[in-house]
Nucleic acid binder design. Structure first.
Lengths: 344, 344
DNA sequence: GAATTTAATGAAAACAGTTGCAAGACTGTT
DNA sequence: AACAGTCTTGCAACTGTTTTCATTAAATTC
């Protein structure tokens, strides 16, 4: 038995292929009775339309490409999920690619996605190789930058202002009276999220006259294990900071576990703040104080936005959408030890 | 400036479209000198081949469909990542779909993926609607079940034996002398993973003459928050179990936080075991004892396997691959309180 | 009841490639 | 130098659908 195509269905229904096509794409153009017949024939033959053939016609491929650094870390998983749910509801399918924080790999992936003629492309962050940008511009595919918001970015973007996130976290620690501050961040080389957070936080501290001790600044990759290991070292000696500003909740989680292992009481003798508010951060003991990035909302909004972008024919359509951050005070931060002692 | 197609490239290189096509698909059939010319023309014109047109020819679409319940929970994220990495290396692109544990939604998603003429499909678990199976059989698309291993399943599968996972966890608790045992599981209705684990564990306990108290068996969805909430209730009174067998590490994490909140010492007065060994489980304080499911390996092996399936023309090609489980003893389990007291 | 719209359908030309076939260009042999 | 055999390459048919245009049937108007 051969796989039924549109001609097969047409014969079965006693109509022309054109009509079958119309039933699927412009049902209102065909007479209800005929439509019924055709729908029956589709049902009966087990016909599944061929999107590839449809896409060939310059029509929508009904796919959206999403390129993320990784999907394994909770951070992006939630956004991917929400994004997927949203576009899926509108009939789009997600083509997923992940490059493991390697911008050259990203170029190749974007190329591959363009071969599949995705209707639009979403990427994480605003840092991308020139080649990637050229490629996308040439193909005139709508491109949306996720995760990061910059009011004046050349790219349409929708996300949070990472500078503000850094600022909020820093200000919270300052407000609590901390001056001996450590920062735990991933490499900021080609990661604009981390970079923005770090520079903003640093600026706030500097403005407050706080000197950031080099020995309390560490660089760790994106993993609980490595964050914990690094913090174990950082917190081992007597001479340790009173507060840790972590680039994100994953790292903060590592920091908290390190403290637990060392018997350092949080928040009594060490404050830890993260950024992100990932699943589980609220449930930790102690519950993590953090700057919430509403992943759900971000992904969903991005999904909606990219679909409007596909709708517009204007290739220069711009959008800069800022998702609000929120400081979530929980139990991992408290008034600085020195200060609290002097108060007592 | 118009988007270059294969004809454009052909003219630029001074050859026929057929030759350009061959350069891309059967490079060995064309003279090295011509090949160079064509490659240059491709480069120069910024040509990006159209996979849709290629797929129309009954050729590979170079895509693989992956259907998961959700990508937001760490559990699947790691597998998705490894799977994607592996198939991506071989030139395939992943079409991702998630159904949120709804098998009817799954049917629709599978249909959508088939419309895109994926070269193969991977799904999670062995429980699927009859419609889904029919659909896939009709289309003769290779189908691989991930995550779950059953030696006699009708579907090619690659994963772990969840019954064994349940058994191992149960036996570990028994070996430690626990008899007052609670189980925290998600709904087992249409989730074969959870069901297999639970029934196997239950059987082991029964065989050991242990009576499972109804009041210590709880059903919670897949979330740290809800697991924690449920366990807070379960562990509140005096009359509580000495050990908790959790369906997975996410739930176990919730259980551990609940205990921490209630001031119950782990493992001194409560043992907790999970299943999965997700990222972070090793770093928790106390570190979680668990049955490791090597997600990385599972995803990668599945990726390799599905590609061989695509290679074979035999639609009945079968594979049942079992990924080994391993009990990882860490600090969240210890000898049962009653027993340890009597020993002292 | 004829003339004019309007609605419903079909025929055929795209779309962007791939491939079987055949012809022309080489190579090596006698 | 003629012949057979092998390499390269182009022609043209084909893939499954959509869409424009034309045609016919039905509905509306006068």
């Amino acid at each position: 038995m051969i796989k039924p195509d549109i001609v097969f269905v047409a014969n079965l229904a006693g109509v022309s292929p054109a009509t079958v096509s119309r039933v699927m794409n412009h049902p209102d153009l065909v007479h209800p009775a005929t439509r019924k017949k055709v729908e029956l024939a589709i049902e009966k033959s087990g016909y599944i339309r061929n999107r590839a053939a449809q896409a060939m016609h310059g029509k929508r491929s009904a796919t959206i490409g999403l390129v993320v650094p990784t999907v394994a870390n909770t951070i992006f998983a939630e956004v991917v999920q929400a994004f997927n749910d949203t576009v899926s509801e509108q009939g789009f399918t997600l083509l997923l690619a992940s490059h493991g924080y390697d911008l050259d790999a990203e170029y190749r992936l974007v190329r591959k996605l363009l071969e599949h003629r995705v209707d639009a492309l979403a990427v994480v962050g605003l840092d991308h190789s020139a080649g990637t940008f050229r490629l996308i511009a040439e193909q005139r595919v709508p491109l949306l930058a996720l995760w990061n918001y910059l009011p004046d970015s050349a790219l349409p973007c929708i996300g949070v202002d990472n500078r503000e996130a850094g600022r909020m976290a820093a200000e919270h620690l300052i407000a609590l009276g901390h001056r001996r501050i450590g920062m735990v961040f991933p490499t900021t080389f080609d990661n604009d999220r981390a970079r923005d957070r770090k520079t903003a936080a640093t600026a706030v501290f500097r403005a407050a006259g706080i000197v950031l001790q080099d020995r309390w600044q560490v660089e760790v990759p994106y993993s609980i294990a490595q964050a914990k290991a690094a913090c174990l070292e950082l917190l081992a000696g007597k001479d340790r900071p009173s507060a840790l500003l972590c680039a994100n909740d994953v790292i903060a989680q590592g920091a908290i576990y390190a403290a637990a292992r060392l018997g350092i009481a949080i928040p009594a003798s060490l404050s830890v703040i993260g950024i992100g508010d990932f699943a589980g951060s609220a449930q930790m003991e102690p519950a993590l104080t953090t700057v919430r990035i509403p992943a759900q909302k971000l992904g969903a909004t991005a999904g909606r936005e990219i679909i409007t972008m596909i709708g517009k024919s204007d290739p220069n359509y711009m959008v800069h959408s800022r998702i609000e951050l929120e400081l979530i005070m929980r139990s991992s931060t408290a008034i600085a030890v020195e200060l609290s002692e002097s108060i007592v």
